[in-house]
Each structure stands twice: as C-alpha cells, then as structure tokens.
Design a protein around this nucleic acid. Structure first.
Length: 469
DNA sequence: GTTAGGG
DNA sequence: CCCTAAC
C-alpha cells in the first residue's frame, strides 16, 4: 500500500495523513481516559451514517447506520463528558475515513481482519485495551490506501459493515449484535445470489474462521463488565461474496478493485475470483488470441500443416524419393542420351550382326559391329531389333497386327531391310514372340519357329521366366 | 553383367 | 531411351 501512496495525489495523501492524525488524536484522548470520545464517535458515526445513506442509500446502509448510532448513543449515555476533539475534526475524520479507509477495509477485509484480531488477541492480554485500540486504529490507518479511493464512492454497505463491525466490536458488546445483524443482512443479500461453491474456499483459512476477540476495549460502554465479544467475521466472507455481487455492482467493484499484495491466500483467492473474471480470461484470451493468431496463420497452414504434414510425410519420403527420382530423372534426363535416329547403315549393320551372331547376343553385336558407335548400347540394339520386327511385320500372322503393320508400313523402311528382317526373324525369332504370344505364335508361327533349334532354348527361357513371373 | 520385358 | 526383373 505504501507503494501506491507514492503514486497518489499529494492532496489526497495529505488528507489521509490528516485523517490518521485525527484518529490518533481521538484515540489518544480516549487513552487519556476521556469518555467524551464517545460523543465524538457518535457525531462521527452520525455524520458517517448520513453521508453513507446519502451516498449509498440502501436497506443495509440504513440498518448499519441505525445500529451504529444506537450503539454509539448507548455508549454516550454511559460515558458522557466533554469531547477533547472538535466535532469538525471528527467529522472530517469520518469523512476522510470513509472516503479513504473504509473501502480499504472492504478491499482487504481479510488482512485487516486478521491484523485486528491478532492485535486484539495479543495486546488485550499484554498492554491492555488502550494499546489495543491504538494499534487497531493505527493499523487501520496504516492500511488506508488512498489508492483505494477509486472505490470510495462506491464502497458498499457490507464493507462499511465490516469496518464498523470491527470498529464497534470494541466499543460495545451490543454493537456486536448489530454487527451480526448487519452481517446477516449482508449475508442474506448475498445468499440470495447464487454463490459458487468454489467460494467456500474463500471462507476457509483464517478469514472464514470465527475470530474470537476478547476486548476490554476502552470504547466499550461498559468496561467494568468483562464482556467477551465473539465477533463473527462472516462479513469477510460476505465481502468476498460481495465480490461476486460486485460484478454487477460497480461500487463494490471499486472496492474489489483494490488489490493488495499483503493478502496471501485470501487475497489470492479473492483476487483470484476477480482475476478469474478478468485476468484469467485475459490470459486465456491472450493465449487464445495467440493460439488463434498462430492458428489463423496456421489454419491455412494449419490445415495445410495437416495436409502439409501428410503431404510432407508423403512428400518427404516422396521428396527424398522425388529428390532421388528427380535427381535420377534429372540426372537421367540430363544423362538421357540424345535420341539418335537409327540410320539405315546402322540398321543394316544390326541385321548383319544378328544374322551372324544370332538374336540375343547383343553385346557381341555391339562389341564387334558397333564398336565405333559408342552411343549404341547392346540394349539399344535389342530395342532396335524389336522395333524392326514390329516394323517388318514379322508378327503379321495376326490379322490385327497385319493391319497395324500395314499402317506402320508407312514408315520409311526399305523393303530390302524389311525382307531381311523378316528372314532373320524366322531364323532368329525374337524371344518375345514365343513368350508373350506363345499361343498365338505357337499356332501361327509354330511352322516357322519349330525349325529353329535356338528358339527352343529361348522358349525354354521364356517358359522358365514366365514361371518366375 | 547380360538380357528380356515392359514402359 | 529407360527401368526392372531374371538369369
């Protein structure tokens, strides 16, 4: 809280200091044994009640004010003496206190509550009531945070109740009932609203625990009677409930807006409630936004990512394969031999080689007849021979093929070459004839092929190959 | 490494 | 002309 005071408006800070001094004066006067403080308190309560009702008119505020005034009046009856403190001071005190401190109490009911209770428990037995009150009020003042002024105008009656409840518990035992009354009102109002079960967590810990304070307070109207005031600080709970209500309640919202670092668990939880509504969603939103953004980018890419992943999964191996393939292809393409048309001399040379070495001995043909032409591989020779067979219509035994060959006959192939190919085909039938068209060739070409002894071996090869395939 | 078959 | 399978 001090941290925020630095940022506060100087005037406001000054007012807070003045209020603190005023209260200190009141307490001091009271410590001195002057019972007239009750008068001041009465006036202060009166002023506070009026201002409170006027600013925040509600059943609760009215009831609270009535309870406060009644308790204060009772105190005045018991002890009435000249008030050392001026009314104006007290009034100013109350106003300032209201504007500054009360909402603060509301904002941090838990801490204040714990601090008050601790001070009460410890100091009551040790130093006595005076110190108790002093420390109590002083602590309250210390906790006053001008920064909380934002909620000053809107601090709810429940918060006031809390403050006054903790304040009045020391003043009178009867005030306790009023406090509880107000508390019940508040809780009733709060209970009317649906409170999430999760808030029960807020109730636990020291906050929710019923604080039993034995106060032999000097403020108490009947100090002689050792009244044990068991203050049920359900209000703190209610205050947290208010946080739920405050969502729609802008005034209380301001109170809730007061976030203190001191509240360890409670603050975390209470604040967490708000944070859940504000920050956490923000984080979610941020995350979601980030996610959405990332997804927005991704969606295209996201869907693409999926596709890409799949695609990549497919493409990666395919890419790797593609790379290999492409590289191979490109390499092959680049390395692909430039298609060179077979010249007639080459064809003749091939025919000579086949007639000499026979079909299938392509390496030998290449080696002996095409040694000069490095670009013709044995495979090329075989392929060319195969093409020549097609072109020469060696297989024209099939009517369809005859027609096709007739059409193919349009190619510029010398008849002598064709005739030679046909003869060679008869002598050295290409293995395929027997292989793929075994039945056909067997029927039509059986007369031709049957002559060739090598064809038998070839047929064997083909049969064997077929078995393999 | 060569060859047949297929593309 | 290339590729693959069979040998």
């Amino acid at each position: 809280m001090m941290r925020k005071n630095r940022e506060l408006d100087p005037s406001v800070r000054h007012a807070s200091v003045a209020s603190k001094k005023t209260i200190t004066n009141i307490i001091t006067s009271e410590v001195n044994g002057s019972a007239g403080v009750y008068l001041c308190r009465f006036l202060a309560v009166l002023a506070f009640s009026v201002s409170n009702i006027r600013s925040n008119f509600s059943l609760f505020s009215v009831s609270l004010s009535i309870s406060l005034l009644s308790s204060t009046v009772r105190g005045l009856f018991f002890k009435f003496c000249p008030c050392p403190v001026t009314v104006d001071d007290s009034f100013v005190l109350v106003r300032q206190y209201k504007t500054m401190g009360i909402e603060h109490f509301l904002a941090e009911p838990i801490k204040d509550h714990t601090s008050v209770a601790g001070s009460l428990d410890s100091h009551t037995t040790l130093n006595g009531k005076n110190d108790l009150e002093l420390e109590f009020l002083d602590g309250l003042l210390d906790d006053v945070e001008i920064d909380d002024l934002e909620g000053a105008d809107g601090f709810s009656g429940a918060c006031e109740e809390y403050f006054w409840g903790s304040f009045m518990q020391n003043s009178s035992s009867e005030s306790h009932s009023s406090i509880l009354l107000g508390g019940s009102i508040v809780s009733g109002a709060l209970e009317s609203t649906e409170v999430p079960v999760a808030q029960s967590e807020c109730k636990n810990d020291s906050l929710d625990e019923t604080v039993t304070c034995e106060s032999h307070g000097a403020f108490r109207n009947n100090p002689s009677r050792p009244s044990k005031v068991h203050c049920m600080y359900n209000i703190s709970l209610d205050i947290q409930h208010l946080q739920e209500l405050d969502i729609n309640h802008p005034l209380a919202g301001g109170i809730l807006s007061c976030e203190k670092e001191k509240g360890p668990v409670e603050k975390c939880k209470s604040v967490a409630l708000r944070e859940k509504r504000f920050r956490k969603p923000t984080q979610r939103y941020i995350e979601e936004l980030s996610n959405l953004r990332s997804k927005e980018k991704m969606p295209i890419t996201g869907t693409k990512t999926k596709h890409e992943l799949e695609y990549n999964n497919e493409s990666f191996p395919s890419e790797s394969e593609d790379e290999c393939l492409t590289s191979k292809r490109s390499r092959r393409k680049s390395q692909r031999k430039h298609q060179r048309m077979w010249t007639l001399s080459e064809v003749m040379n091939l025919v000579e080689g086949i007639s000499e070495y026979g079909v299938g001995r392509w390496t030998d043909i290449k080696r002996f007849l095409f040694s000069s032409s490095s670009h013709r591989t044995p495979i090329d020779l075989r392929d060319k021979w195969r093409n020549l067979l097609r072109a020469s219509s060696v297989e024209k035994f099939n009517k369809k093929e005859v027609e096709q060959n007739d059409e193919l006959a349009l190619r510029p192939l010398p008849f002598n070459v064709v005739h030679r190919v046909r003869e060679l085909a008869k002598i050295h039938p290409y293995p395929r004839q027997r292989g793929s068209k075994k039945s056909q060739v067997g029927q039509a070409g059986s007369s031709v092929v049957a002559k060739d002894s090598p064809s038998i071996s070839l047929s064997k090869r083909n049969v064997r190959r077929k078995k393999c395939s």
